[in-house]
């Protein structure tokens, strides 16, 4: 009854079945991708363009007037002590947190992977901070580091040391925040390194042993470290980016203080934009922030292309 042959024609222009199939595939493609495209444009593309545009104006929320001011906002940033301090603090924070959290993450992964005993337990313990509410844990650390009633200083008193006001002193506040940052990031870096370690073929270690790499130290440099290259680069990048985005701990504990000693980039942007509502000026800061992220990504791609590709 039914014929295998498709009815010819019907609609005009469907005479070429290949073209019709292509058109219907394209139609289906756009229909499926449509919502994502619309939201991508509305929530990412447009706001990004808007932030750049706003940075060239003096727009303040609550005032109807909006004026094009060219690069004035950026020029103002160059003289803005708070912003410069903020940039400096963010840089210091990043320079402390990144190497420590990467090195400790790698160390923890290597130690955990070295033997089966307690492997699951330690992995769980080190990973806890990653899934803990950072605002809550920051609060706990604030109590632990409290100058008078905090257990840390109580412990120090036991050995006769008068502990500083960790989060209240301008000399120690950034260091203390960095410590919390490291505590929070190590577990994340550790699981990435663990994944990298398990991907190294066992036979390479066997070959290294037969090739007279007698000590664990030799085998680390001959096999582990080079084979972890891509993972390490990736972990470093993600650690830097997360450090540059430090916000929760500052907002919870120090609010940039004391005396701007813990003023960091996102906190400054938040204050300018959402507390003082100077949208134009805050947009300029945001563009700088975005620029920093872009540079970091470009650096990562460069490094990835040059060094750590083996195949």
């Amino acid at each position: 009854m039914d014929s295998i042959a498709l009815p010819a024609g019907g609609r005009a222009g469907t005479s070429n079945p290949a073209a019709a199939a292509r058109r219907s595939e394209a139609f289906a493609g756009w229909r499926l991708a449509g919502p994502a495209v619309a939201l991508l444009a509305l929530l990412i593309l447009l706001p990004t363009i808007a932030v750049v545009a706003l940075s060239l104006t003096d727009f303040e929320l609550g005032y109807d007037e909006i004026r094009f001011v060219g690069l004035d906002n950026y020029l103002e940033l160059l003289d803005d002590r708070t912003f410069l301090i903020s940039l400096g603090n963010t840089l210091t924070y990043t320079l402390i947190v990144t190497p420590l959290s990467v090195a400790l993450g790698l160390g923890a992964a290597l130690l955990i992977e070295a033997d089966v005993r307690g492997r699951a337990l330690f992995r769980t313990v080190y990973f806890l901070p990653v899934v803990s509410l950072l605002v809550a844990m920051a609060t706990v650390w604030q109590y632990l580091l409290h100058p008078t009633i905090g257990p840390v200083n109580a412990l120090l008193r036991l050995v006769g040391i008068a502990g500083p006001n960790w989060l209240g002193g301008s000399d120690t506040v950034l260091l203390s925040l960095a410590f919390i940052g490291v505590w929070q990031a190590v577990g994340f870096n550790m699981v990435l390194f663990l994944a990298g370690l398990t991907a190294i073929p066992r036979e390479l270690y066997a070959a290294a042993e037969v090739d007279r790499a007698a000590t664990a130290w030799d085998r680390f440099w001959l096999v582990t470290w080079p084979m972890l290259g891509p993972t390490t680069l990736f972990v470093v990048t993600i650690s830097v980016i997360n450090a540059v985005k430090v916000f929760e701990t500052v907002s919870t504990i120090t609010q940039g203080g004391p005396n701007r000693a813990s003023e960091v980039l996102l906190w400054t942007i938040y204050q300018e934009g959402f507390v003082y509502l100077r949208v134009g000026y805050a947009s300029a800061m945001t563009v700088v922030f975005l620029g920093i992220l872009m540079v970091l990504m470009v650096l990562q791609y460069r490094a990835l292309d040059q060094r750590v590709h083996y195949t």
Partner: peptide, 21 residues
């Protein structure tokens, strides 16, 4: 679209927060 998505990966909420707000 794929290129736009790759670029979008670089833009965190902190960058788009002001206009959306």
């Amino acid at each position: 679209l794929i290129a736009a998505i790759m670029l979008g990966l670089l833009v965190p909420i902190h960058a788009t927060a002001l206009p959306i707000y």
